[in-house]
Design a protein around this nucleic acid. Structure first.
Length: 651
RNA sequence: GCCGACAUAGCUCAGCCGGUAGAGCAGCGCUUUCGUAAAGCGCAGGUCGUCGGUUCAAGUCCGACUGUCGGCUCCA
């Protein structure tokens, strides 16, 4: 596979500009809830266990495990989860004799174990396995550790048919091999483990799936059973409740119910049809986005959806990115390809004529629609699609203005997080591997400058960040930002990346004060990622309850009976004139039913008018989540709503 | 693509051991004009994902295909 070759060539997965944030991440970033990969907010925080709760057996001597195969230091909670994985393995071993075991690590919120089980296992089998686990846990077996020499360990593998474990041994250069035994079950395992199985109480098996041995699709596929595990019942319950909450907020479900968007096979898998309600919200987001960019000196671009094959040669996409691109299209004998990124066009705009240092920095922004091939199995609602619109921008600047430009990117990003109600976020600074500079393109000078500038910009703003050594793209370092949503899940939105290759490839230049050509520095950035994915995140973040400024329908007018329809129309006209989006529901159902309908459609305001209101020129205001607020003067309601829109207030 | 599960009306779902398809909601019509989350009656709506097989008989059993969902990064 080409990507495999690229990985080899670059020593890391090939990541193209902006690739990382939008659709290229594993589903871990995209649907963290489903895999338990979201970060807990304080109420889900996992306090460390006290030492007495979980006993971690230290290695018997420092030399027992050599080099990188020394056992990891596991926290008490990680140890607990790791032991749960082994408890599960023992349960499976009892229920399905002959099962061969792969690996069973702790993961965020729980654990999994990859196993070659003697028969197919489905979710219906999980309760049975879980029951067996509890039974074993209750018998309070001791987890006993022992060691074998490599040869002995291999004999053990041979005798017990544990061929995967034998493979693991093959990868261990030296030292004794560690085993753990509880009851009749022995597993080759580095540990550490809790001391008694009775410590393992608060867990639940959640999913079963296939997973390739060692993550390689050329290897046999094992059955992976996932579980979640916590140290207290309360935490487990909170976690399960949160999973339920996530299901309630599922953007695919809400998207259908609220008529936001439609994705169907008939109109193309992975291709989004924005329905009127969703399209309106998108328009609001786009208007706001353009406004913020124009106010910050960006210039807007529109670029084509296809480009000649040769352009993708020059940009390097044909060489490095073909796996994600669609087949060429023949246009009168010349080949074109759908664009997977916008950068070549923005470069084209820069190259339109000779540039002077006086023009820099140039900031080109575009809501640019790109198309990328994604394997059918990876498509997921709005979160992973095949055609999407990036909120893209490319900034061209000198090294002197680099700091200010990067700062500007962070500022606009922070403004947007605030607007959309993401007060909490996490920042990662990905830099090159200082020990292995060869795999990163560009001079030491430019890298040092770039990395220190990125760090300085974060430091100056007092933004805490995690430094990711060696995680930079081969073409430049980057800042990634992940926001925390209403139920504590983490979503990557923003990426700000420096690119040292494209300006060279396209021979970009500007004439400096010294009257000689210079190479500009190029920044790629996307703040929201893609409109599709961001919309999916917003739907789940708001649980479908959009703030008033985004809501397609802001108020539903409900006359109590036919007699008050005329007054309702007056109210409707007044509100429309004030720029509010109102709909009149003069259906012949009872008022209670129409209120219910408005609630189910998540309309922010239901305005009830009857005899009282018509008399006093008021409306009965019912605010979603707040309930009946009583009668208010028509002007007061309009003022209140306009203010709410103005402030872009959250619901 | 691979592993597992699933596919019945627009939506949510029932349909047992194989005997010839059902509910609620939504839609449409009529009645009702009502004070803060479901008025009443009626009508219409389905080649049971597709193709093939077993059988007197298939929504139901078997196989293939298509699609959807959960995963396929976490390495003793």
């Amino acid at each position: 596979m080409l990507r495999a070759k690229l990985n080899h060539a670059f020593g890391r997965p090939f990541r193209s500009p902006l690739r990382g944030l939008v659709h290229a991440q594993g589903l871990s970033q995209l649907t963290p809830i489903l895999r338990g990969a979201y970060f807990p907010r304080p109420n889900f925080e996992e306090p460390p266990m006290s030492e007495s709760e979980a006993t971690v057996e230290p290695p018997e001597s420092a030399n027992e495990f050599a080099g990188e195969y020394a056992p990891r230091e596991l926290s008490p909670l990680e140890t607990l989860r790791h032991s749960m994985a082994h408890l599960m393995a023992s349960a499976v071993a009892q229920l399905y004799p002959g099962t061969r075991f792969g690996v069973g690590p702790h993961i965020e919120h729980g654990f999994f174990y990859d196993m070659a089980i003697t028969e197919p296992v489905s979710v219906e089998d999980l309760p049975r396995i879980e029951e067996k686990m509890r039974e074993i846990a209750k018998s309070n077996l001791k987890f006993e550790r022992s060691f074998l020499d490599r040869d002995e360990a291999l004999v053990w593998c041979e005798q017990t048919g544990q061929d995967f474990k034998a493979e693991i041994i093959a990868g261990i250069p030296q030292g004794k091999i560690s085993f753990y035994k509880h009851g009749d079950f022995t597993d080759m395992c580095a540990g550490p483990h809790v001391n008694y199985s009775s410590k393992l109480k608060h867990f639940k098996l959640t999913a079963v799936s296939g997973a390739y041995w060692r993550g390689d699709d050329k290897n046999p596929q094992l059955t992976r059973i996932y579980g979640v595990g916590f140290e207290s019942k309360e935490e487990l319950e909170a976690h399960l409740k949160m999973l339920e909450e996530a299901a309630r907020r599922d953007h695919r479900k809400l998207g259908r119910e609220l008529e936001l968007f439609s994705i169907s096979q008939e109109f193309g898998g992975g291709l989004v049809l924005w329905l009127p309600n969703g399209a309106f919200i998108r328009k609001q987001i786009e208007d706001y986005w353009r406004e913020e960019h124009l106010a910050r000196g960006y210039q807007l671009l529109f670029s084509p959806h296809v480009a000649p094959y040769a352009l993708w040669d020059r940009s390097g996409h044909n060489e490095h990115y073909a796996d994600s691109m669609y087949s060429p299209i023949d246009v009168e004998g010349q080949l074109y390809r759908l664009k997977p990124m916008n950068c070549p066009f923005h470069i084209g705009a820069y190259k339109h004529r000779q540039r002077s240092y006086r023009e820099l920095p140039m900031r080109f922004a575009e809501l640019g629609t790109v198309y990328r091939f994604e394997r059918s199995g990876t498509l997921h609602g709005l979160m992973r699609v095949r055609g999407f619109t990036q909120d893209d921008a490319h900034l061209f600047c000198t090294s002197e203005s680099l700091e200010a430009e990067l700062g500007g990117c962070l500022d606009i990003a922070q403004t947007m997080y605030r607007t959309f109600g993401f007060p909490e976020y996490k920042v990662e600074l990905s830099v090159r591997d200082a020990k292995n500079t060869k795999k990163f393109m560009g001079s030491d000078e430019i890298w040092s400058l770039a990395e220190s500038t990125l760090a300085k910009v974060l430091d100056d703003r007092g933004i805490p960040y995690t430094r990711m050594e060696g995680e930079a793209a081969f073409y430049g370092p980057k800042i990634d930002v992940k926001v925390v949503d209403a139920i504590g899940r983490v979503w990557q939105l923003t990426t700000i990346q420096l690119d040292f290759t494209q300006p060279d490839r396209f021979d970009l230049s500007y004439v400096g004060r010294d009257n000689t050509p210079h190479r500009p520095i190029m920044i790629h950035r996307a703040l929201l990622g893609s409109l599709e994915r961001f919309f999916g995140i917003l739907i789940e973040h708001y649980a479908g309850d959009f703030p008033l400024w985004l809501a397609p329908e802001q108020a539903r007018l409900i006359p109590i009976s036919e007699k008050f329809v005329d007054y309702a129309r007056e109210v409707e006209a007044a509100m429309r004139a004030a720029g509010l989006r109102v709909k009149l529901d003069d259906g012949d159902e009872k008022m209670g039913y129409r209120i219910r309908r408005a609630e189910l459609e998540k309309v922010p305001y239901a305005l009830v008018v009857g005899a009282k209101e018509a008399e006093s020129r008021t409306v009965g205001v019912r605010r979603r989540h707040a309930g009946d607020l009583g009668a208010m003067a028509l002007d007061a309601v309009i003022g209140r709503m306009k203010d709410e829109v103005e402030r872009k207030a959250a619901l």
